[in-house]
Structure formats: structure tokens, C-alpha cells
Design a protein around this nucleic acid. Structure first.
Lengths: 345, 345
DNA sequence: GAATGTAATGCAACCGGTTGCATGTCAAGC
DNA sequence: GCTTGACATGCAACCGGTTGCATTACATTC
């Protein structure tokens, strides 16, 4: 196999020093060099100092891969999301990364593109070189997830499987508040613009809408927007307007934003003649009109998830954890009183 | 060191089979098992079949880490971006990932948060376990980048360092078209709302604005929005309006969007009394009014970058590559004729 | 039937670390 | 002065693969 260069370098040979070279140069054994880095308290201060001095002079850095092979600790974690480009994820990714960084871990990012097969493939590639994984909005079936969880610490985001640590963004309270808000504004017929059927969040939101609407005597119809995106939201506008409802609550902000664009194209004014509520609050005030939405601090989910992963990795938490993140309604300018004249039915 | 379980599993022991176990179970040597996976053409079809059969029965999967230690090929690449949450990056990340996936590589994602020290730290953590890295909008100084490039194949996105493979989104043509567009609409005084000083993109855009404006006899002032974001864009509105210009071209779409919000808050109508141009085209038509912007297919940058990285990894390209991606102006609804009455001067 | 060649497989060293155990050193205690 | 023990360091096996070279088996040729 014989490798004398460190891979890429095309310029100077740039031999990467190994533990043996440091050992020779500082006149100690390989074991001592190893300990100088991983368990310095076992050695004399003097020895540690000398070894480290030589190490920096030679530009030695412990080889993570070799270390991982012998200890089983890789210093890596994996994060798999269903769609990097969905604005819900970037803040979550950022927070997860930050937390991992603080613990000195590197993070692999996987993008399943909503495809279970792809997700499975990614898990397979990652699992051998990470100490733990977090699956955000996983599309994998329960059995697969359970199997992976036996091999490595694993935490789920927005997926509710008993016995597996999970962090759930509980949008039910926010959604309930949204329905209440709409009811108070006089809306009687509303639409739920739904997302992926396999999505836990979608099921949760749909149920919350139904439950709360029933409680208040509102009628609700469901209109799909799949996959959830600006475009599918926009396209749903026609059907929604035709159905005669006066307000809609969308699976997420992107769909809501698309819906508003679709409504504008149909000359339906928001909020004057139609009210729209989003979910996730990832767009801030950047929509026109600013979107009333269920806010969920999704970045926290990333932070908490890797936090839980870490504690599971060290020490191994015994019981299962089901961490709920709260939500609330943020009222901005896309909701208003129901129009006086009903448009159909 | 003794490790008999595969790390995390707390349920069944779930021993992960090694090459030796497969060897024993199928009655061949470890070398043969190894070859059955990495160089099957060296073996009888019959042998390969038998070994693989046993492997799946045992649930054996080659250990990437061990393989990497002995071959030096890790099957990983790193992608470092300056801000995951900036909408410019997610499409780029997605494309990069897709391309890497097709080559069977895993990708580490790093988020430097615009901080060179953090970026350096990340590179240090990654470099030992990847075969190559791509740095998008790197904030590292040239010397550091050069040094890393001697250790591993490395490609830059939107950073122009001679001798290092780079892909540059050339927004100059689009920016020039934008200036021409504004000039034709009768604007004589415009503002450039600038981004990070260390950003190559910003320098390039600023220069293109200056050059083109001069050519057409427009006056241009520069107003900072740092770090570039919706909020800093919004805050820049006051200063911009006070300066008496009738149009602005922003460092990126986010800043442009913020600026429009700031203008709306000051009761300045877009495009009636002020025109705004963005850059990157990452927001599509989702702004209000839909943003005229310089479009750059930024996802391509991710794809091309890992493509170049791959070819550098295998075979090692000899010469340097400076790949330019073109841009063009997309005219939507945020630009219009200059208002007849000048507001100051 | 012996010599020759070729294809399939095994042996053993190696990648660069970690770690259980043995060894050596030195000071305190009797 | 000898035992005892604590502490610092070294030895060598090990992690789970890969691979250069040797060996074996078998077909081909004369």
C-alpha cells in the first residue's frame, strides 16, 4: 500500500508525521506520545511538555481515523434532514452544528430529499463512522429506525416513536390558538392545506386543526399541497377559493406564502377577503402581507436534539426521552375579519 | 481496549461482524473476504457469491474507518460555508451533496458563521478525515488556504486565488445589465448596498457597479449592510432615502428584501418612487413586489465545485482551473421609471 | 509425463493510533 | 539496608481492514 504523502498535496511532499516519528524525535515510546495527547495526567508534566514541543515542531496532529479504529470513538455525528432547501431546516442545522462544535464533534449532513430509500442509503454510509445520529423529519419506516437505534445512539426530530429519544415541535397549542383566532374573527369555513402524509408534523397539525375546529363548530376541508412548497401552495389557491372557505391554515410558511401569491393572482385580497395562517415562522416578516403564523423556534430543536444525543453518547441515558418544544401564535397581517358576504354555498 | 458491542446499542448485544467472522463462516481467508468486496474481479464468481451470501446473512458491512486507515481513502469530503442560514447556500449545499452522493461520498458540513478562526478550526477537524474540501465564500486568508491546499485537493467557491481551483459566480454581466436597465429607466443616482468587505462577491459586485455606472454617467454611492441580512437591509433604508438616490442595487436578495421593507416603512413606494435590484435570485417571486434581481444559478456552483474536486481527487488535474458561472438580469416588478421629481439636491 | 504458465487464494506485514500489563525507578517506612 | 508501594514509562497486542508476494491447483504444451 505504501503511502508517503498525505494524499492531495502536489507541491512539496508534505509528509504527515505519525506518532512513531514524534516518538523517535523526542526519545520516548509511541505509547508515551499517545498518552501525551489523550491522557496527559498519566505522564510527568515535563514529559508532556517535551513531547508536545516536538509535536508542534514536526507539525504532528493525531490521526482521527486511526484513533477511531482503536477506540471506537470517531468524534462525528450525522444529521439527516428531508430537504436542506426548505427554510425550516437551515436554522435547525445551524443550531445543531453549533452544539456539536462545542463538543468538538464534526457533523455529516445528509439530505434525503423526502425519499426513504435515499435516507436509508445515507444512514448506511454514515453509521460506520459516527457515534450517533439525528434524523429530522425522517421518512424511514419505524422498523428501520428501530434497527438503526440499536446500533447507535439516535435521536429523532418531529417523529414520534415510542422507546426512541425524540424531540417534537408541538405545534398543537399554536394551531389551536390559530383556529381560535380565526373563529373570533368570524370565520366559519376554513381549509387546511396539508403537507406530506408520512410527516408526523403534518398529522399532528391536521389533527389539531380538526379537533379545535370541531370544538368551535367550524367546518374544515383539507386541500393537499405536495410536496410542500411555494409552488404547490400557489397552485392550491384556485381549489381553495372555489371551495368557499374564508380562511386557510397551511402546513408550513412556504405553502402559506405560495397560497398568498396564488390568491393575489386571483385578485383575492389578503387579509381583506381571505385570511391565511402559516406554520413554523421561518419567514419572519418578510412576506407580504406579513404572515400570521404558528411560531416554533425550530432552531431549538436542532440544539436540543444534539444535546440529547451527546448525553446518550456519554453515559447513556437509561429511560426514553420525549422532549416537547412549545409553540405559540404570532399574529401579523395576513389574518383579518371574515368577509361579510360569503362567496358560495 | 476490548470492545464487543458496536457502541450505542443498549438492547441486544448486536455485535457488528468483522471481516474475520465472515472469513471463518465462509471458510476462506480474511484477504479473500476483503477482495470479495473491494476487488471481486480477482476472485472466482463462485467465491464472491458465497462470501457475499454469508456476509448478508451475518449482516456484515465493511468498516469504512478501518478501510480508510489502510488505504488513505476515506470516502468523505467537506463543505464549509459561511452561513447555512443564508438562503444563498441551501441550494448550493443540496447540489453539492447530490453530486457527492452519486460518487458514493459522504459530506461533512461546516458553518463558519463568517468567522475565520472558526473556519480554520473546522478545516483542522475535517482535513484528517476527508479526501478533499470545498470552501464556499471562505473568509480565511490566502496563506491559510494555500497551506490547506497542499495537504488535500481543495476547491473554492466565490474566492479568487491564483493557482487554486475555484468556481466563481460571475455576477458582473448581470450587474452591468442591471445598471443598464436602471439607466434606461432614467435613474441618474443610485446606491450600492454593500456586503462583507472580505467577500469576493462583494468586491466583484461593487466594482461592476462602479465601472458600469461610470460608463453611463450615473452617480453611485455605497451604503453598507453588514452582516448582509434582512435586518441590515431594512436599517439601511433611511440613509439611502436621505441620500437622494432613486434606485439601489443590493449585495444580495436578502438585503434587497430588507431594504424594500424599510422603504415601505418610510412610505416610499417600490417601484413607483424607488427601484430596487437584488442579487443571487434565491427568493424567486416570493417577495413583494417580486424582485428584479441578478440571477446566478447558485446551485450549479455546488455541483460544479464537487465535480472539480472529484476530478482533482482521482487523477489529479495538472493545471489550475478557474470556472466561471454566468449571470443575467431577471426583470420583475421592483424596478420602474425614475420618479419625475428628484427628492433632494 | 514433465515443464510451463496462469488464475485463485492464503500469509503476514502494515496503516496509526490505544491500552492492559510488565518493568523500572525512586522515596518512604520499618 | 531492605521491603513496599506509587508512579512513570515501555512492550506488545489489538482495532478491522488492504495488499505485495508466495503458494497452490489446474490447464496447456511439447
Amino acid at each position: 500500500m505504501k503511502r508517503d504523502s498525505d494524499g492531495g498535496g502536489k507541491g512539496r511532499p508534505s509528509i504527515v508525521p505519525t506518532i512513531s516519528q514524534v516518538a523517535k524525535a523526542s526519545g520516548v515510546s509511541r505509547a508515551t506520545v499517545s498518552r501525551a495527547f489523550s491522557r496527559p495526567e498519566m505522564l510527568t508534566e515535563e514529559t508532556v511538555r517535551r513531547v508536545k514541543e516536538v509535536a508542534v515542531k514536526l507539525g504532528y496532529v493525531p490521526n482521527q481515523v486511526a484513533r477511531a479504529l482503536s477506540t471506537g470513538r470517531h468524534g462525528n455525528v450525522a444529521l439527516i434532514v428531508s430537504d436542506v432547501a426548505n427554510p425550516f431546516f437551515p436554522p435547525l442545522i445551524r443550531a445543531a452544528q453549533l452544539r456539536a462544535d462545542q463538543a468538538g464533534l464534526c457533523v455529516f449532513l445528509g439530505n434525503s430529499d423526502e425519499d426513504p430509500a435515499r435516507e436509508e442509503l445515507l444512514v448506511g454510509r454514515f453509521i460506520g463512522q459516527v457515534e450517533g445520529l439525528v434524523l429530522a423529519s425522517s421518512r424511514l419506516d419505524e422498523e428501520h429506525i428501530r434497527r438503526h437505534a440499536t446500533r447507535r445512539p439516535l435521536v429523532l426530530i418531529n417523529r414520534d416513536i415510542e422507546g426512541i429519544t425524540r424531540v417534537l415541535i408541538d405545534t398543537a397549542p399554536g394551531v389551536a390558538a390559530a383556529i381560535a383566532h380565526l373563529a373570533e374573527l368570524g370565520h366559519r369555513h376554513i381549509a387546511y392545506v396539508s403537507g406530506p402524509t408520512t410527516s408526523w408534523s403534518n398529522q399532528q397539525r391536521r389533527n389539531a386543526v380538526r379537533r379545535e375546529a370541531e370544538k368551535r363548530g367550524l367546518k374544515v376541508i383539507a386541500v393537499p399541497a405536495r410536496p410542500p412548497s411555494y409552488d404547490t401552495g400557489r397552485l392550491a389557491a384556485t381549489q381553495i377559493v372555489a371551495s368557499g372557505v374564508t380562511a386557510a391554515i397551511a402546513f408550513d410558511d412556504l405553502v402559506a406564502q405560495g397560497l398568498m401569491a396564488g390568491l393575489a393572482a386571483l385578485d383575492v385580497e389578503v387579509p381583506k377577503s381571505f385570511s391565511v395562517v402559516g406554520c413554523d415562522d421561518v419567514l419572519g416578516e418578510t412576506t407580504y402581507p406579513p404572515l400570521t403564523t404558528v411560531s416554533a423556534r425550530c432552531a431549538d430543536a436542532g440544539d436540543v436534539a444534539v444535546g440529547l444525543l451527546l448525553s446518550q453518547m456519554n453515559g447513556g441515558v437509561s429511560g426514553e426521552i420525549r422532549h416537547k418544544l412549545n409553540s405559540h401564535l404570532v399574529i401579523r397581517a395576513s389574518t383579518g375579519p371574515a368577509p361579510v358576504k360569503r362567496r358560495s354555498r
